[in-house]
Every structure is written in structure tokens, then in C-alpha cells.
Amino acid sequence: MIQTIQQYLQFPFVRYALVVGTLIALCSSLLGVTLVLKRFSFIGDGLSHVAFGAMAIAGVLNVTNDMLFVMPVTVLCAILLLRTGKNARVKGDAAIAMISVGALAIGYLLLNLFSTSSNLSGDVCSTLFGSTSILTLTKAEVWLCAALSVIVVALFVLFYNKIFAVTFDEDFSRAVGTRVESYNLLIAVVIAVIIVLAMNLVGSLLISALIIFPALSAMRLFRSFRSVTVCSAALSVVCALLGMLISIVGGTPVGSTIVAVDIAVYFLCAALEYFKR
């Protein structure tokens, strides 16, 4: 098996896929802890559907580099969702559901009406559940992904203490003069960026799994915010690497294999927590 892996590693596209996959897994897990604790898990889900819709529109419009179109649209929706969610929680919830299902439906409709592709359901399926596109990345895309990952990690480290404070107690932070709205905005924008990046890896339906599972697993094992964050990042990277290797060797779909590994690790962590007591 190791030989097979070594053999595959000789291909540059496999190496690119592993690098990009690892970076995406790292980024998505960092903010996962905050999203789970803030009860924002569904924002990730909603935004990923938006990204699907945007991808469909980009396809119809024949935009050459669809990331340039999908990214701004998703970021915009992240900001909009946050704005509506601020004033009334219930309305914000409904807004997420509305935008996410709406984008999904319109996206599929547009693809059906205007698609130039001969294999429509195959296209849709690969956008939703991840595709081989992770294996067809160009060098430029790898660099773009790496640069964005570095920015995400740097932002997270720089604002780590503020993100913790805002996650734990928004009202207290606001009372002592922290600009809570700006940090929430930052979190939403970063999440939107991560989701668009992660679409290549696991597809838009499975992104939430990449964001929340490592955080939930880490929260089972650790008791401080810092160790939960570090552990979540480590678990996410390990799971993504393992998932990708399994999928290469076994010929399984990349996205769902990674998520399956994430789920397995979650139950492993839950069991560990149970026996530690």
C-alpha cells in the first residue's frame, strides 16, 4: 500500500491535491470552534449553498475563472446574513434557510436551462459532493489557495484573543468598547473565503462537516479554548490527509471519504471522553 502511495506521490497533481487539501482543512477547522460555540454552524451550510448557486451562474455566464465570481458573491451573502441575524435571531435563522435553499434551487435550474455541458448531472453531483477537480488544480490555483490560507491563519492568530472574547461573551466585549460587529464581520468573511476554497475539496454540501466535525471532536477531549483550537486544527489536517490517501488508494470519492474519516474520529473522541471519566 505504501508503494502505491509513493507511486501516486510522483505525480505533481497528487502532491498539489494533498497540499491544498491540508491547507483547506487547517483553515476550516480554525474558525469551526467559534462557529460551533456561537451556534452559527448553519451559516457555513447556508453559505456553501450560496457558493453552489454562484458557481452555476458563473458556469452559465462562461466566466473563465469562476473563483473570481463565486468568492465576492459568497462574501456578500455572508455579510448580508450577519446583518439580518443581528437584530432578530429567529428571522436570521429563516434568512439562512431561505438563502441557502433558494441558491441551491436557482443554481440547479440555471444549470438545467443553460448548461452547455453534455454531462449535466455529473457536473451537479461533483459540485455538490466534491469532485476530481482537486486533482486537476493548476499551479496558479495551488498558489492562490496557499496565499489565502496563510492570510486566514495569520488573521486568526492576530485576532485570536479578540475572537475568543467575542465568542465567549459579546455583550461584555461590547460594553468594554471592543468593536464586536467588526469581528463578527471578519469571521463571516473569512468563513466565506474558506467555503469557496473548500468547494474544490469536498463539494458544497459537505463543507459544514469539514468545519464542525474537528471542532466537535476537539471539544470532547480538551478543556481550554486554546487546546481545543489547536487540537481541532491538528485533527482536521490528519483526517483530511488520511481521507485523501484512502481515496487515492481505494478509488473512493475524495470529499465523502474525508468526511467519513472525520465522523469516525469524532466517535473515537467521544469514546475516549467516555472512558476518561
Partner: peptide, 12 residues
């Protein structure tokens, strides 16, 4: 919330 006492007090 997974946070230590120290982390929370520092956020003050």
C-alpha cells in the same frame, strides 16, 4: 464553553 478560568479572566 471550553475555556479555562484564566482565559476568561484575561479577556477582561
Amino acid at each position: 464553553f471550553p475555556a479555562t478560568v484564566r482565559e476568561i479572566v484575561l479577556s477582561g
